[in-house]
Every structure is written in C-alpha cells, then in structure tokens.
Simulated scan of single mutants.
Amino acid sequence: MPAEPLLRIEGVAKRFGPVAALDGLDLDVAPGEFLALLGGSGSGKSTLLRLVAGFETPDSGRILLRGEDLAGKPPQARDVGMVFQSYALFPHLSVFDNVAYGLRREGVARPEIARRVAEALAMVGLQGMERRMPHQLSGGQRQRVALVRSLAKRPSLLLLDEPLGALDAGLRERTGFELRALQRRTGAGFVMVTHDQAEALSLADRVAVLEGGRLVQCDAPRVLYDRPATRFVAEFLGGANLLEGRAGADGAVECPAVGCTLRLPGAAPPAGAAVSVAVRPERIGLLPATDAPRGANTAAGTLRELAYRGEAWVALVATAGGQVLRVVLPGGAAPPPPGDGVALAWEDGANVVLKE
C-alpha cells in the first residue's frame, strides 16, 4: 500500500480580483521528497507556497499535512518551515539568536535550545560563528543560517521561495549541493519554488511545472526533460524544437516547415493525423552539407547564428523549409562559420510526440 502523502493539495483555487492565481490544482508530496515548483511569472508557484505556509487562504479546495486539514490554522501552528529569498534574518540578532528565535517562542528549554542550535550550525559548517551578526556573514553563510533556523524546529515540511536566487552562479551551485545533502540528512519534505530550470532538475526528486495556475506535468527530472507531455513543457524546459506535421499512410510524419520526414518511435499515428513533435537541441547532430545523410530525421539548411558557451556551442540553423532549429553541440572543435550550408540528423528516439 502506498504511503500517505506528507502534503496533499486537493482542488485548490485562489483568485486575486479577476486573476486566477490557482485553478483547481491537485498535487501530492511524499514524505522525505524534494519537490520543485517551476513555471513562469504568474504561474501560481509562489501563491501555492504561501497557501501551504498559511499566509494566504484558498478560495476552495483543501490543503492537508499528514492527513490533517490545515484550514483555519495560522502559520505558527503548522508543522511547516519557510525560507525566503531575502533570508529575512533579524539584523540585530546574532547567528545563535537567529537560529534559536523560533525555539524560544515555542518555549523550548535552554539546554535543548543550545543543543539544537549547535547541531543545526554543525550541519552547515558554521560552528564558531554563533556570535557573528548577519552583516558579518557572506551571502552563502546567511542563506545557511536561514535554512537551519527553519530546520531547528524540525518541521515535517520546509518551503523554500527562490532560496538560491540572491547568490552568484558559482555559489548557487555549491549551495545547491549543500541544500540537497541537508534535505537528505534531515529527511524533511522540501518544496522549492524556482525560476531556474537547471536548479530544479539537479536538486529535486520531482519537478512540477505550472502554467496559468494549473499543473501541466509533474515527473522525475529526467522523465520531464526527455518526455515532455505538452508544447508548453517542451518549450519552457530546455527550449526544445517543435516540429509540426501530418502522418502519412506509412506512419511517417511529413514536416514541410522543416523540409524533412520524421520517423517516430513506438506506434505510428493514424494516416492524416496532425502531429506535434519535440526534438531536444542536443539530440541533433550537425554535419557539413557535403556529408548530408539521406532518409528520415534529416534536414538541410544554412547555419545562421553561432554562440560559444564554454561547454557547448549553440547554433541556429535555417532549414530548407524555412523553420529555424536550435542545435546544441559539444564545446570542442568549432562548427562551420555562419553562412555555411549544413546538414542536420537525429535518431528516431529523439522525436517526442506531444499530447497537446
């Protein structure tokens, strides 16, 4: 029998005037799971986090934590911690007192507070910094204090609103690994809101993609990336190329805008059916025009733009049919210069048929 969800969102809706921030959303979070909420501005990510925390009230639907309906419970009465992008540390309190603040409000005994604070700071390598003030810490150190301040109360669920957003790129990656290790060590459920796709894919057990207040797809990162269910997910996550075509009698799909024929993995669509296919840019190979292969999943074109990004080259290729495809190549030898004719080719398995 499956374990009862740690958090269950049932048909939750929330409006702000004429705007539907959430529209009948359903979502479960398992005990000890790290879930990332991903979506564009206005998708409902932060609203959902605030509803779970108790800072907003749903217009309809239920939010249950360990089977208990949270309706009417104020934030401080919920077994939930929250970490904000701004850290929200008390500037006049030391590191020790910031971490101890919530425990003191709960009436925890002094020896237990001292023990829990020492344990929390040790988890993130901040031993010996108990008397420092927030302004004496780096951005990464302040983020760690904000994290363990919430975790010191040992909540079942920790909510994180863009927790790494204020850090520079190098520190974000390092702090992200530390955050993931901390989540595994504590066993608490984490729900993180982020705009950073790489962050969501690298840290979370599952990623929930929201659009217009609705849950579009929720899957493990690899499934979500390799097998997007909709056009929105395919384009939003990783910038897949979208190819439109119509199935022929042999099951192959003709794509006039690209000037190619697609051969699909799995069952062939019925003849005459309109088909939308996503192809990830890194699954496409780029060859000189003189080496152009023939057959399905091949296209001819002109290399229009080229950008070097260290570990990869990003190329824009205008195909013979007029559509521009994005291609990501390993950052080794440089591709041909813009203006050259090129050939594109990819395997059947790179073609992902979209449901909508």
Rank of each mutant, 00 (worst) to 15 (best):
Tyr87Lys: 09
Gln85Met: 06
Val95Pro: 11
Ser86Ile: 01
Pro75Gln: 10
Ser86Arg: 13
Val95Tyr: 08
Gly72Leu: 13
Asn98Lys: 05
Leu64Asp: 05
Pro75Glu: 11
Gly102Phe: 09
Phe84Pro: 03
Phe96Tyr: 15
Leu89Gln: 07
Ile63Trp: 05
Leu64Gln: 13
Phe84Ser: 01
Gly81Pro: 11
Phe90Met: 00
Ala71Pro: 10
His92Thr: 14
Ser60Met: 01
Ala77Cys: 01
Arg104His: 13
Gly67Ala: 15
Gly67Pro: 09
Leu64Gly: 12
Leu65Ile: 14
Tyr87Val: 11
Ala77Asn: 06
Ala88Lys: 08
Leu103Tyr: 06
Ser60Phe: 02
Arg104Ala: 06
Ile63His: 10
Pro58Trp: 15
Gly67Tyr: 15
Gln76Lys: 01
Arg62Ala: 15
Ser86Leu: 01
Pro91Ile: 07
His92Gln: 14
Arg66Trp: 01
Val80Met: 02
Arg104Thr: 07
Leu103Gln: 03
Pro74His: 07
Ser86Asn: 15
Asn98Asp: 03
Gln85Lys: 08
Gly102His: 08
Pro91Gln: 09
Val83Pro: 07
Pro58Asp: 10
Gly61Val: 02
Leu70Val: 13
Asp97Gly: 05
Val99Ala: 06
Val99Phe: 10
Ser94Trp: 11
Arg66Met: 10
Leu65Gly: 04
Gln85Ala: 12
Leu65Gln: 14
Tyr101Ala: 02
Asp69Trp: 12
Phe90His: 00
Phe96Gln: 05
Ala71Gly: 14
Arg104Asn: 10
Gly72Gln: 14
Ser86Lys: 03
Val99Asn: 10
His92Gly: 09
Met82Leu: 15
Leu103Lys: 03
Met82Pro: 13
Ala71Thr: 15
Gln85Arg: 04
Val83Lys: 09
Phe96Thr: 04
Arg66Tyr: 03
Val99Asp: 07
Asn98Glu: 02
Ile63Tyr: 06
Arg78Pro: 12
Pro75Val: 06
Pro74Asp: 12
Ala88Asn: 07
Pro91Arg: 02
Gly81Leu: 07
Met82Ala: 10
Asp69Glu: 14
Pro74Asn: 05
Lys73Trp: 11
Ala77Leu: 04
Asn98Ser: 01
Arg62Thr: 13
Pro75Thr: 07
Gly72Ser: 14
Ser60Pro: 02
Val83Thr: 05
Gly72His: 11
Arg104Tyr: 08
Pro74Val: 04
Gly81Gln: 02
Pro58Arg: 15
Tyr101Ser: 01
Leu89Ile: 09
Leu70His: 13
Leu89Cys: 08
Asp97Phe: 01
Arg78Trp: 04
Asp69Thr: 11
Gln76Ala: 02
